[in-house]
Write a protein that binds this DNA or RNA. Structure first.
Length: 220
DNA sequence: AGCCCGATTTGA
DNA sequence: CAAATCGGGCTA
């Protein structure tokens, strides 16, 4: 109780999303992602994100200024949801960054679940053991570690495409941010081997040592 | 640790 | 028509 009120007063506003993209990506670590849906409330602390910076970044969907119904929202103001589908069955949630006509986005790769864990488990189609069971921490980490798991656990699909995170049931709040500089880690992004010179850019950011960082990213 | 596969959409 | 900002299930 009172949790919603506390969160709303700490809700991240437009000014927050107006930071330069790499700075915003780091600032998002420790922030809490919240979705107030018809099925209930789910929330979690962001522990891993990646920046994509079209049109130059060849890993970005907006590379070379690609503009389509899919990428359109990235050409608008920051703080909106860019949701896309990959491999025919998964959805991934991004926060639009950069001013209008600058198609940047930040992929939300993993959260540490804080609220609505049973709803997350139901959406994911997995059973969550009792909190005191030895398997609990491990299963909890499987709920939303990885961009498609995060989206599924949070009830995000194409429905949320274009939602304004500043003014919608899907939003961000201060949570535990800002994270101390010493807790911040950076490295290359995942699964973008096709991106030429941009493949090795250290534009993936995560909270060092956090067990909820997605498996393929945990090192260093 | 590694391979394979799914089920859709996009862009070349 | 190939490839995709991935995850699950299997083999071992």
């Amino acid at each position: 109780m009172g949790e919603e009120g506390d969160r709303l007063s700490d809700r991240l506003d437009r000014a927050f999303f107006c930071q330069p993209t790499l700075q915003l990506a780091r600032a998002l670590l420790g922030a809490e992602l919240v979705h107030v849906s018809a099925d209930g409330v789910t929330a979690g602390i962001l522990v891993e994100v990646e920046a994509y910076m079209g049109p130059d970044d060849l890993a970005a969907h907006a590379r070379k200024g690609l503009r389509s119904r899919r990428t359109e929202v990235m050409y608008g103001p920051p703080g909106y949801a860019y949701v896309f589908q990959v491999y025919g069955m998964h959805f991934c949630l991004n926060v639009v960054s950069g001013p209008p006509e600058t198609p940047h986005a930040i992929l939300l790769r993993a959260i540490e679940p804080t609220e609505g864990l049973s709803l997350m488990a139901r959406r994911r189609g997995v059973a969550l053991p009792p909190r005191d069971a030895p398997r609990f921490q491990r299963q909890k980490a499987l709920l939303a570690s990885g961009p498609a798991r995060l989206a599924q656990a949070m009830g995000v699909d194409r429905t949320q495409y274009g939602w304004d995170l500043v003014d919608s049931p899907l939003y961000l709040c201060r949570g535990r941010s800002p994270v101390a500089e010493s807790e911040l880690a950076a490295g290359p992004r995942i699964n973008i081997d096709y991106a030429g010179d941009w493949r090795d850019k250290p534009w993936r950011f995560w909270i060092r040592g956090n067990p909820h960082v997605s498996a393929r990213s945990r090192s260093s």
